[in-house]
Design a protein around this nucleic acid. Structure first.
Length: 347
DNA sequence: CCTTATCGGAGCCTAGGGGC
DNA sequence: GCCCCTAGGCTCCGATAAGG
């Protein structure tokens, strides 16, 4: 990848801001420029003229000119016969999107409906293999949304359908519990297993924060691009400190909101959360469910383990234990005679 | 002795290349 | 077109090292 940068830097000397009044940036073989349409026309001509001899072959049909609506006519006129596509709406760019709010909403909306479908498929699997589905969600699926969350601002509301599908489709399929997934239960599950949650994040709630963090963290680079400063260096120690601060803030904000959540929860649930925070108490949630190593829980085991973790009613427990005493979750854990699925799960 | 920092490993994303 | 590899980015966890 560094070779692309080196190769393109030779071309960029020819088409620099000083010569073209076009501010530009390149990633791998993707070259982008911003400026007045007339300047962009000269810039494009220079790219076409100088590119091929320097190993860069521009492709007009893969090149897009994005203009503000009021400059559309002018853009079309100046780039007539160039082969370049002119748009006043916008264009996907490096996994994100540039353009009007409407275009942005359309692009993100398309991605979100894809993701909602994926959550639906995983929910179907969760009905028979909840542990595998859970791991696929926490280790995989939810990370696929992070790039969009970080790079496109103001999409929290657009991610609501995704949050809805998690709450109304995925969680009921995963937990099978009679417990109603209200706001507080949903919030509890967003915390990391380490803090007593299940690490099922809310894309809608995290979007703005992740975008802010991303902007904050890349600020030094953004400034250099705007100033077209190709020589300045970013102090990596500053970046490292920023990361630490962000991480610390995130951590303390989580602890804070967990405390707030605890204050509205039943005492029993609060003590269950403390137990779940003990070292090793959540390993079964974070490990990969590899069957050969005995790390995989079957459907019944997984559902029961979650119910025990949060003190939710365990399904199918006999009213009376074989020892004759009235039966409940606590009893199954202590009775010498009883041997229910619930206690098996925890061994 | 307890807390904090660091590192490795699990996964995902972006952009590529090369082999079959 | 699929699979596996490269570079960079991120989170979260647990284990271990360093520091108050």
């Amino acid at each position: 990848m560094a070779m692309y940068a080196l190769g393109l830097s030779v071309l960029q000397d020819e088409i620099s801001y000083e010569k073209t009044q076009v501010k530009q940036v390149a990633y791998a073989d993707d070259l982008s420029g911003a400026g007045k349409i007339s300047d962009l026309k000269k810039w494009w001509a220079l790219v076409k003229e100088n590119g091929p001899t320097k190993g860069y072959t521009p492709n007009a049909t893969k090149s897009i000119l994005i203009v503000k609506p009021e400059h559309y006519e002018n853009g079309v006129r100046l780039f007539r016969n160039s082969g370049v596509i002119v748009t006043k709406d916008g264009q996907r760019h490096l996994g994100a999107v540039i353009g009007t709010d409407e275009f942005k909403a359309k692009c993100v909306g398309e991605k979100v409906s894809e993701w909602v479908k994926e959550v639906g498929v995983l929910s179907g699997m969760a009905k028979t293999e909840p542990h595998a589905a859970y791991s696929a969600f926490t280790h995989g699926l939810q990370h696929r949304w992070s790039f969009v969350k970080r790079t496109i601002p103001g999409i929290s509301l657009l991610l609501r359908p995704l949050e809805e599908s998690i709450r109304k489709t995925f969680l009921p399929a995963l937990l099978k519990s009679k417990i109603i997934i209200g706001d507080s239960v949903r919030e509890l599950l967003t915390f990391s297993p380490r803090l007593g949650g299940m690490g099922i994040t809310s894309p809608e709630k995290l979007a703005d924060e992740e975008n802010r963090n991303s902007i904050n963290l890349t600020n030094s680079l953004t400034e250099k691009i705007i100033a077209q400063d190709a020589n300045g260096e970013t102090d990596q120690n500053v970046i490292l400190e920023l990361k630490k601060t962000i991480s610390r803030n995130r951590q303390s904000a989580q602890v804070e909101s967990l405390e707030r959540l605890k204050s509205v929860m039943l005492d029993d649930t609060v003590s269950k959360i403390s137990t779940a925070q003990e070292t090793g108490a959540s390993s079964w949630l974070t490990c990969l469910p590899i069957r050969e190593k005995g790390f995989s829980l079957n459907k019944q085991e997984f559902v029961d383990a979650v119910a025990l973790r949060y003190g939710w009613p365990v399904e199918g427990l006999p009213k009376t234990c074989v020892c004759g005493d009235p039966n409940n979750v606590d009893h199954t854990m202590t009775c010498e005679k009883g041997d229910s699925c619930a206690s098996d799960t925890m061994r």
